[in-house]
């Protein structure tokens, strides 16, 4: 019996998928690089990378029915991890160069250009970790590698829900405050690149794998 969790790195034509694959393997996952719907649906975890423009990523996601894939996985309580633009497309909408693109709408909110003197926000920054975060367990005060010019500066959901657990939001600041990570049941996402954040990033990936069955 294979005890290693199976993870699909969703290969829809965006990003340095090789790094994500190797980093996940390094922390113990059985990784498949594919855009095949059934394989991605049935894996223990789905890792959604993403670099470049929001609209280009959405084109790739739509081409491989990524929206339906994420919906069906979440309906079954199965884990999904979006990274960088792979996180941004989980929100309602992205606005880049005046182009408005619909995202997957898992969370309300708009991805917009950050206000800062120097962009992209490129390099290692600290984050203000959500209380009781499982994703950041053990690396709460570490730095993580960011490279992006766009982000979500307004989180539109309440901090507490009456009957269910509200998403846990981790923040970063560069010019202004923006969402660095969200933990929302089976759906988690980071704006930074855990696969490029050295040992701290590997710990985040390992924390995620721990929750997979």
């Amino acid at each position: 019996m294979n005890s290693r969790p199976s993870v699909v790195v969703f290969d829809y034509g965006s990003g340095n998928v090789r790094s994500a694959q190797r980093a996940l393997e390094h922390v113990g996952a059985e990784v498949t690089l594919t855009s095949d719907f059934e394989t991605a649906l049935n894996a223990d975890g789905l890792f959604v990378p993403g670099v470049g423009a929001f609209d280009a990523c959405m084109q790739g996601i739509n081409k491989y029915k990524g929206g339906e894939l994420v919906d069906r996985r979440l309906a079954g309580g199965r884990a999904v991890f979006g990274v960088c633009v792979g996180m941004q497309i989980l929100f309602d909408q992205g606005v880049e160069h005046g182009i408005e693109t619909r995202g997957l709408g898992q969370w309300p909110g708009v991805v917009e250009k950050l206000t800062a003197d120097v962009l992209p926000h490129m390099g290692w920054n600290t984050v203000s970790v959500a209380p009781n975060s499982k994703l950041f367990a053990g690396v709460e005060s570490e730095r993580f590698y960011f490279v992006h010019s766009y982000g979500v500066t307004k989180w539109l959901l309440p901090d507490e829900f009456e009957k269910t657990k509200a998403p846990q939001v981790t923040w970063c600041e560069y010019g202004e405050k923006f969402v660095a990570a969200v933990e929302n049941g089976p759906l988690v996402a980071t704006q930074f690149h855990p696969e490029k954040s050295g040992d701290a990033g590997l710990q985040v990936l390992q924390n995620w794998l721990k929750g997979l069955k």
Partner: peptide, 11 residues
């Protein structure tokens, strides 16, 4: 590059 990216998890 491949072998480095396989083992070194920084940019």
């Amino acid at each position: 590059v491949r072998r480095t990216a396989d083992q070194v998890f920084i940019p």
